[in-house]
Every structure is written in C-alpha cells, then in structure tokens.
Simulated assay, not measured.
Amino acid sequence: MQKKKIYSILNFVTAFAVTLFFSCQSESVPTNTISTLEDAPIAEGLDINMKYTDSGRLTAVLTTPKVLDYTNKNFGYQEFPEGVVLNIIDKEGKVSVVTSDYAISYMETGLIDMRGNVDIKTADSTHLIAKQLYWDQNINWVFTDQAYTSRFPDGAVNEADGFDANQDFTILNSRINDGIMVIEE
C-alpha cells in the first residue's frame, strides 16, 4: 500500500512537470533588434595608425582617433567619424599633410572621401582649404568638385570650384579660377 502511494505521487508530479514543460512558450527576438545588429560595425578601433604602401614603398600614413569597420557590407567601407590626418609621402620622401573632420574609405574602389574643414599642406608649402576632398589610392590622385582656396609659397592666392591633382601635388588642374598672382618685374 505504501508503494502504491509513492507511485501515485510520483506519477502526479511527473504529469504536472510535463504539463508545465509543454505549456511554456518561447519568446522570439524582435526583428528590429536583429537589424540593429546587422547595421553595427564588425569592429571598432581607437587611436589607429594605418600605413599604405606601393611596391614596398611607404606612400601614406593615416592616423585617426576612431575607426568603424563595415567591411562586412556588400560595398564594404571604413568610417572615421572623428576625422583623419593623412600624410602623403612622395618618391623623394617629402610629406604633404591632409586633415579633415570626417572620412570614409571604400575598400572595393580604393577611394577615401574626406569632409569638413579639409586642410592640405603640401611638401612645397602650398596650402589648400576645401570642404571635401577625394583621394583615389589606386591611381594616386586627389580631387574635389567643391570650392577651395589655395595659397602658394610665392604669395599667390587662388579660389576655384574644384581641382584634381596627383597625390604629390606636382600636377594641379584647377577649374573656374579667381585669384591674385604675384609677378616680379
């Protein structure tokens, strides 16, 4: 009789536990949480120093306080929300410095888009100020369609609506110019 009571209680507890187990429902993750994770960068770096080379020769050094890596996207890119300092080194070792408040680098095209207070100081002391500048790493070319101002070492000033130049700034093609030239007699 004692064994019958134990089996009855055990059967009751088992039936109760099975009922509780099957009555529980799982909660699904909201879809907006998943999309937020997909939009997040796969990596974040702080105080970064990137070096660019061409055939073993150092051609540029890019430093930034913060980089967000979105190379997991279909058209992968790296974002520099706190700006960059780009040192472009020519074949003779002369350095031109480009700074901006924001930049984005597209992996597939090799294009870096710099925006906000773009300031360029070339190796020969030419100083250019622009709102936006593109650097094409594949062909070593910089360009903009935005207005810019340049001050040359001889005191000449040029204002224009865009330019393109090699990354050494030894070739500079400017469009729609207005400026002051210094001419010695």
Rank of each mutant, 00 (worst) to 15 (best):
Y148V: 00
D101E: 15
K94D: 08
I129Q: 15
T99W: 13
D168Q: 10
V18P: 05
Y102P: 07
G116H: 14
A43W: 05
K131W: 04
T19C: 07
K66H: 15
Y52C: 03
S28A: 10
G155E: 01
A160L: 00
Q2G: 01
I104T: 08
R151A: 00
N87A: 09
E108A: 14
P65W: 01
K91A: 14
E79P: 08
T59H: 13
D113L: 10
D113Y: 15
Q132N: 08
Y102E: 10
L58E: 07
I120H: 09
M114Q: 09
Q146D: 12
Q132E: 09
I6A: 00
S26A: 06
H127S: 08
I88F: 14
I42C: 02
T170I: 07
A103G: 14
M114N: 05
V85W: 07
N32I: 02
T31D: 12
D39I: 00
V84F: 12
I6E: 03
E185H: 11
H127K: 11
I139W: 02
R57E: 02
A165Y: 00
T122Y: 09
V97M: 06
P65S: 15
I6F: 11
T59D: 15
I88L: 14
A60H: 09
R151H: 03
T31I: 10
I89H: 12
G45Y: 11
F75V: 08
I120L: 13
K3T: 09
E92P: 06
I88A: 10
T144S: 12
S35G: 01
S105F: 11
D168T: 03
P153K: 03
T149A: 06
L172R: 12
A15E: 07
F22L: 11
E184Y: 11
N32G: 05
L111G: 06
F75W: 12
T64R: 06
N177F: 03
D164S: 14
Q137T: 15
T63L: 07
F16A: 10
Q167V: 01
A160Q: 01
G45W: 08
A147L: 00
N166E: 03
S174N: 10
Q25E: 12
N117A: 15
E184S: 14
A147I: 00
F21L: 08
S28C: 02
R175W: 06
I183E: 14
K91I: 10
V97C: 05
Y52A: 14
N166T: 05
K121D: 07
R115T: 00
D178S: 09
A103Y: 13
D54F: 14
V85H: 09
T144H: 11
D145W: 04
S23A: 06
D39A: 11
F169Q: 04
Y106T: 04
K121W: 08
T71K: 02
D113Q: 12
S55W: 09
F80V: 05
D119L: 13
